[in-house]
Amino acid sequence: MANKFFSFLFSKQSLRYVCTTHFWGPVSNFGIPVAALLDLKKDPELISGPMTGSLIVYSLVFMRYSMAVTPQNYLLFGCHFVNELAQLAQGFRWSKHHFDAPKKIEEAASS
């Protein structure tokens, strides 16, 4: 089984794929969702709402683009799918911090 895997891994077709932008574009793009996932534990005060919204739209557009090109780029789709989930989580944290927290502060002050 390992022999079959390594023969596939080092075949001309696999090596040709690794030398294309269909591979290196998504690989280099994975820095965005990784950074967003690492930021999930940071203070929500540091989140930029407009930038998070832009990244949500950006990932949706490129998920669609990755399926529209020929050949379809599943690696790019996966990258932007992970980024979409991470940015939606960041957007939820941002909106909760900016719109829910002031209500809690007012309720605590009036009590």
Rank of each mutant, 00 (worst) to 15 (best):
V69E: 12
P33Q: 03
F6R: 02
C19D: 04
L9P: 00
G25T: 12
T21L: 11
F8K: 04
F30A: 08
N29P: 01
K12A: 15
L55Q: 06
L15G: 02
L46E: 08
Q13S: 10
Y58C: 00
D43T: 14
N73D: 11
F77Q: 05
K41H: 12
F5S: 06
D39G: 09
A108S: 05
E106C: 08
K4L: 15
T21W: 13
G53H: 02
M67T: 13
L75N: 01
L37R: 03
F92C: 06
H80G: 06
I47P: 07
V34C: 02
K4H: 08
G31A: 14
P26N: 08
F6W: 10
K4I: 13
M67V: 14
G53L: 11
Q87E: 13
T20R: 05
Y74F: 15
Y17L: 10
R64A: 15
Q87Y: 07
S14Q: 05
S95W: 12
M63C: 15
E107F: 06
A35L: 11
F5W: 13
G49R: 05
L15A: 01
A68C: 06
M67I: 13
V18D: 00
C79T: 11
H22Y: 06
L46M: 03
C79F: 00
S110K: 02
L76H: 02
K104F: 10
Q90H: 07
T21M: 10
F8I: 07
K104N: 09
H80W: 14
S28V: 15
S28R: 10
E84A: 13
S14L: 00
Q72G: 08
L46W: 08
L85D: 00
V18G: 08
L75F: 15
W94V: 05
Q87K: 04
Q87L: 07
M51K: 12
S11N: 03
F6Y: 12
L88K: 07
V34W: 02
T21D: 01
P102S: 11
F77W: 12
A108I: 06
K104P: 02
E106A: 15
L9D: 00
K41Q: 09
L40G: 05
